[in-house]
Design a protein around this nucleic acid. Structure first.
Lengths: 355, 355
DNA sequence: GTGAAAGCGCTAACAT
DNA sequence: ATGTTAGCGCTTTCAC
């Protein structure tokens, strides 16, 4: 059995309270007592039991996080930033995946709540179906949504200007002379899927999408779906001359199928993604996309959470960050051989908005 | 303040012990008491505090896991499988990243230990520098290594036959008539980097690597490094006609640079990866690689861990799983247009070995 | 079948 | 500066 704080106290010839004080550096302790305690800790190999500490302190110094998927590189990159930030603030990160399933998500949310995390960070997998569990959790624990939000606007949220990003992409395709623009997106159940799709339809304005329902295909944010959708789109007698994709994974799938069918990207068809995952620059051709400001997104989300932990009563805050168009080889031959970066086009007008 | 088990007890007109029994279904309780308890739970919105429960039970029903990186898709895929498996066994997964830094790794290991996880799953980021922290943790908590191991062979481990995989790749390159085979790998600090590099040198046998030290480049398991290394290798007057890479990310970087330099893959130079991440099949050309049996790897690791939790005293077990060569377009034009799968070549001789 | 009481490991008041 | 005491929320003997 591992040593407890009482074992240390006995070995050091002091009381448990003194050991606690030495270890947490809370109040001043006589140097020789401190030395004795430290020696005893060392000798017994004592490690404090955070369960006991958390139970008493009513704080675990842990933040729970739930992401919808871990096989979409966008989320790992978000996780990496968040973990780094929280670590520096002295918080541990407890990470879970919902696998895009609201039931698993709810289960995870409850689990983290019962384990008394001090705060919750979540990208809900569904706008409506995630709502009950998010609400339950938010009633008890400071909660901040990032990148995706549930329908209700009563919780803290920091996301990006999905609509603006799509608008930039459509305008870019237009400026290249493309007129027949198709869309391959994820499902509308989640925030990103819904907003990007809606924005695409809105951006088409002149060209009525009702005339070409087969030009808008929705299913999931995966490369597999990108391959399938491209099959439908590109094998037709009159393929589109541009395909805007809901994220980078879909776009990579589309490009892969285009190559297989012998179509040249960008000459025969231009293709764009969304997210700017690290793979985007490696693709052949490299991928034109919209970059989400992950560093900013995660920093704001973490700060929002810490501020809410500090003051649980403050009114909810919703931040929308601007995106950046990254032009690369999949839409512009001029960029096909660029060593890596691509041309960055900042968003035209959108400022970070707080409501 | 949230309701405690005593609040529920009072509301239901029973004792806390009875509430506990109802909730854990431990011993039989009179139906009407049970109903009253459940009603009170519902009415008060009671959620058990797992800190109190864990402190008393001396079990958190949580497993801690540490992976070196989360931006190498191989590890997310491992995580996904592990989480699924543990969830079905009633365990929560607490996931951390070491970011390939032994100090952060040690900190995480200590953190998880102090939080009293019931078991630890880890891919150590370094063979020797990870050893002290792994040893400390393993002294207190059941620990299983997966995919990577520390130097010492005294802890449970399930990995893959890295050497066999590399041997398959070199043999494959040879069978294609390639004679000047280069190697671009990760750093030798970690298990995979060391074993794959060693295996490559061994597989060369006839061709003495000392004659061509510039043919073997080691740094990190990233696409960026792949790009840099390919620059050196392919811009030379006498580029190699085959490049074996330490993992898929490196290979994708190499292919990207080859394309930029105007070299054709596989005609001018064949390229292979390792891991078979989902991106491998999407690359242009698709990537010949060695598949790690992730499902089997994770299942064995989880089972090893649960068995050690069950019997902490049992002798350590080390499992090496066979790999599978996946031939695709980056080495064979015949496979360049295959819709996806590639040709699978099972390992020749290696059986799962238990020592 | 159920309640009372003790205690998991820790820290925060309150003394001194 | 330090020890004593109580209690965080829960489960589990041990009686009845």
């Amino acid at each position: 059995v591992p040593a407890s704080i009482y074992d240390v106290a006995k070995a050091a010839g002091v009381s448990a309270a003194t050991v606690s004080r030495v270890l947490s550096g809370a109040r001043s302790v006589r140097p020789e007592s401190a030395a004795a305690v430290l020696a005893a800790v060392e000798q017994l190999g004592y490690r404090p039991n955070q369960l006991g500490r958390a139970l008493r302190r009513r704080s675990t110094q842990a933040i729970g996080m739930i992401v919808p998927r871990v096989d979409n590189p966008f989320f790992p990159s978000v996780v990496q930033h968040i973990e780094e930030y929280l670590r520096l603030q002295g918080y541990a990160l407890l990470l879970c995946t919902s696998n895009d399933d609201p039931d698993i998500e709810a289960q995870r949310l409850d689990m983290l709540t019962e384990r008394q995390v001090d705060g919750l960070l979540i990208s809900p997998c569904h706008q409506t179906r995630s709502l009950p569990a998010v609400r339950r959790a938010a009633e008890r624990i400071p909660l901040v949504q990032l990148d995706r939000s549930v329908e209700e606007e009563t919780y803290d949220f920091v996301g990006v200007d999905d609509a603006g990003g799509i608008r930039q992409l459509v305008a870019h395709m237009r400026s290249l002379g493309r007129r027949d623009i198709a869309y391959v997106g994820g499902d509308r159940g989640n925030w990103s899927g819904a907003h990007r799709h809606t924005a695409f339809l809105a951006a088409l304005d002149g060209q009525r999408p009702e005339d070409h329902p087969e030009r808008v295909l929705l299913a999931s944010f995966s490369e597999l779906w990108g391959r399938e959708a491209a099959e439908q789109l590109l094998a037709s007698r009159t393929p589109p001359d541009a395909i805007v994709c809901g994220n980078d994974l879909i776009a990579l799938g589309v490009i892969s199928t285009a190559a297989r069918l012998g179509l040249r990207v960008p000459q025969d068809v231009t293709v764009s993604g969304y997210d700017d995952i690290s793979m985007a620059v490696l693709a052949q051709p490299s991928l034109t996309t919209v970059r989400q400001p992950v560093a900013e997104l995660t920093k704001q989300a973490a700060e929002l959470l810490l501020s809410r932990i500090d003051d649980p009563g403050r009114p909810p805050n919703r931040l929308i960050l601007p995106t950046q168009l990254i032009v690369r080889g999949s839409t512009s031959q001029a960029h096909a051989d660029g060593p890596s970066g691509g041309t960055r086009v900042p968003a035209p007008s959108v400022e970070p908005v707080s409501s």
